[in-house]
Nucleic acid binder design. Structure first.
Lengths: 336, 336
DNA sequence: TTGTAAGCGTTATCAC
DNA sequence: GTGATAACGCTTACAA
């Protein structure tokens, strides 16, 4: 490999290494003849600067870190994350940054990942996806003043920079939509308790019920995880209730698909007997039978705001607005 | 931020900075008392080494690069990539490596990305996914001896380290399966020409036809891209042929779902009148109607072999076997 | 305008 | 055993 350094370029060009550096940095006060000489040598030998040395000196790595909180297995199954990662790569790339992705498997490894990426100065800043209500890293990150942005929410909301879907509003809209369609026994099949998305969507669901004067029933709320299996089991249980729901809001499309399966297995007509709404508007919503109504979250907007915000934070150390909310939209298909 | 360096630890411990380094590297010949003193200072102040400085010195970054060849948009839609990325993160992480992901949008940016990652020494090695038959980077990478591994294929096959699905065998198996089910007008809806996966699957398809004595017809082969839309359009066209196919092998599940839509739109029964097989065994295969038979590719195996191979290449510079093939498996559901 | 030299935070090779 | 000291490749005062 042609491991060329500025020093070698300098010798080949018969100038000092500092001059090579100046030429590369576009310093105006360098003689045109020398500049040309250096440039032609660089051109000829194909010099590329060493990013490590540059960043050691400049204290900037040009890399962003992305840490997600799901196991590789969950990651692999959930289209939300692939879309998010893809969009972040895109926007980071446009701004001249690279992206280092890590998945925090177990809770105890979170600390490790944050240490490994930020404190080792591998990255200039961090994007954290969906922190939990209890997240030990947050206080430390805040205290040490590292640049980081959350996709999701953390309490107190204005302590951190964060971008989030309007989960409360979206769940309320979806539930109101079901209510308008004359459903009043509406179930909410959720993910884990203590995860903000789940709690927020729950809150929106409750708000819609309350506004419509419907008595919320804890029988109709099922907490679990983000899997299709959970959706299936929870919905099966709900349908065997003495007074089963006629509609269900799922926290996730995967969960909704599971619920859909349970409904169809019991030969209930969708949407006539049971209506189903999912979340995320995943690509497969169009392909399931019947096509699944879903709340579309604007993943690209989420990614763009988070990335731009983080870069501004890195480059300017301070940004006025701390909390950004991206609106969602109900995409109605045949399941409602 | 507590930007602690070995130097500061040294002063606090009242030893030389070299001793701090020795303690950290576990050098045996250091006095136990000093070692304890240093360790307690490190413990107390929470020192973390600077990865950039380390790698500048050691010539290793501890980071792998992953470059995929699809646009962020395609990336976002295709579950194959999220699964692959997730698995690579997992295996790289287990081996103590981080992962830097980049997407090569346009052809001309490929060169740039390779330069940016490898030659700037941001990463120790590269995993390239699905190179094209014409890939300008390959000769340069080879010539300069950079450690890299392909997921996919490149000609001549034994010039590069690569891991691949048994695409030829899998397509042959799938086609033979259709033939056994008494289909003899079998279509192949492919992705782009010149992409190895597409060409290889085409070859397997042809082999099966030839072995069964069925005359291949170019009318029944549709080249296009990896989109659902292409699957739909191609299949629509095929079905309006005077002598339409009774079965279709799609290069991809997304394409297969598009084909399925075209078939259902024309009210042909699946699988009675038209059988459909996809590729990748994506999560949504279970959710479409009817559930889609698909060739399961072992993404985790692909990721594991590629990652381990690359790491061996980085750490040992030479590995015996250059080409690895991962078998696939037909997962039969209701569409065949 | 150009070159010399001091760092950036490590690791590794010297003497002592 | 331990402490200076020289790299690693780059940026940037400071000198000339």
């Amino acid at each position: 490999m042609p491991e060329l350094t500025q020093n070698q370029i300098a010798k080949l060009s018969q100038v000092s290494q500092a001059t090579v550096s100046r030429v590369l940095r576009g310093d105006p006060r360098v003689n045109e003849e020398l500049r040309q000489r250096v440039l032609s040598v660089i051109e000829k030998h194909g010099y590329v600067p060493d990013a490590r040395a540059q960043s050691l000196r400049s204290q900037r790595t040009g890399t962003l870190g992305l840490v997600v909180h799901r196991s590789p297995k969950q990651l692999a199954r959930d289209p939300f994350f692939s879309a998010l990662i893809a969009a972040i790569i895109e926007f980071a790339g446009k701004a001249g940054y690279h992206l280092c992705v890590d998945a925090a498997r177990a809770v105890q490894s979170r600390q490790a990942i944050y240490e490994e990426l930020l404190r080792t100065r591998r990255v200039d800043g961090l994007i954290l996806v969906e922190p939990q209500t209890q997240d030990e890293r947050m206080p430390r990150l805040l205290e040490e003043g590292f640049p980081f942005v959350l996709i999701g929410r953390y309490e107190p909301t204005d302590a951190v920079y964060s971008v989030d879907n309007d989960n409360i509003g979206a769940a309320r809209t979806a539930t109101e939509h079901l209510i308008r369609k004359a459903h009043y026994r509406i179930a909410y099949v959720s993910g884990p308790r203590g995860v903000f998305v789940c709690e927020d969507r729950y809150q929106g669901y409750r708000q819609a019920l309350e506004r419509a004067g419907i008595e919320p029933s804890s029988d109709l709320v099922a907490w679990g995880d983000f899997s299709e299996e959970h959706g299936y089991r929870a919905m099966s249980r709900l349908l065997s209730l003495p007074n089963p729901p006629t509609a269900v809001l799922a926290v996730d499309d995967l969960v909704a698909v599971g619920a859909l399966r349970a409904v169809k297995e019991r030969c209930r007509a969708v949407p006539q007997q049971v209506a189903v709404i999912g979340f995320n508007d995943s690509p497969f919503c169009n392909y399931v039978e019947p096509p699944l109504s879903s709340i579309a979250v604007d993943i690209r907007a989420l990614a763009q705001i988070a990335t731009d915000l983080l870069i501004r934070l890195i480059e300017e150390r301070e940004v006025h607005q701390r909390r950004y909310i991206v609106p969602c939209q109900l995409v109605e298909r045949s399941s409602t």
